[in-house]
Amino acid sequence: MKPILILSALLLLSGCSDNWGWYVVDPSTTNGANNLKFMISGAYNTILMSLTAILISVFVGLLVALPGLSSKRGWRAFNRTYVEIVRAVPILVLILWVYYGLPQISGVTLNVFWAGVLALALSDSAFQAEIFRAGIQSIGRGQYEAAQSVSLNYRDTMRYIILPQAIRRILPALGNQLVYMLKMSSLVSVIGMQELTRKANELVVSEYRPLEIYTILVLEYLVLILIVSAGVRWFERRMNASEA
C-alpha cells in the first residue's frame, strides 16, 4: 500500500510542475488528435498478429502434446526435446533469428508480420504443449476405459471424449497465454512491425514526449487486455454452463 501511495503522490506532484505535456495527445487539438489516432492505429496489427500466432501455437502445441502422452519412449523423447529447446530461447532472440537468420538458410524471406507471427507462435507452442499435456493427463482413466468399452478408436476417443473435457479445464491457462501473447507482440516492434509499441516509439522520436506517449501506450495495452480477459471469462462461463 505504502509504495503505491508514494508513487501516486509523486505523479501528482510532477503533474503540478511543468514535467507533463499532455498537449501531445490532447484530442481537442488537431495535432494531439492526430497523434492519438496514429498510436491507436497500431492496435490492428497487435491484435491480428497475436490472434494469428495464438491460433497456430494452440494447434502446434496440441500436436506436440499428444506424443508426450504416448507409451512409446521415442514419441515422448520428441515431445521433451521440442519443449525444452523451444522454451529455452528468449522470444526477442527468436524474433531476430527468424527475421534475419531464417532467410539465409531457407531462402524464404518472410515479411515482418509473418516473421513476428512465426516467432511468437513457435515460442508459445512449447508452453501450449505443456498446458495441453497437463489438461489431458487430468482426465481420469475411467473416461478412456468407458470409451474403449464402446469400441471408440484413439482418434475418436481424443476428439469426442478427452479433448473436449481437457480444453474446458485448461481455458484459464489458455486465456493467460493469450494475454501473454498480446504483451510479447510488442517485441516484434524491433524488426519494424507497425504495431502499438512501434507507433509509440516513432511518435516519441518526433514529439520528444516519452512520458506522455508511453503512458498512453501502457493504457492501450491495459484496455486491450482487460477486454480480452473479460472475453475469456465470458467464454469460460459459457462452456461451463453446459458441463459438470
Binding site: G142, E145, Q165, S242, A244
Partner: peptide, 13 residues
C-alpha cells in the same frame, strides 16, 4: 463385450 463400471464413467460433457 460391453462393460458397466463401478463409477459409471459417463461422459460428463
Amino acid at each position: 463385450v460391453g462393460m458397466v463400471f463401478q463409477q459409471f464413467n459417463l461422459f460428463p460433457h
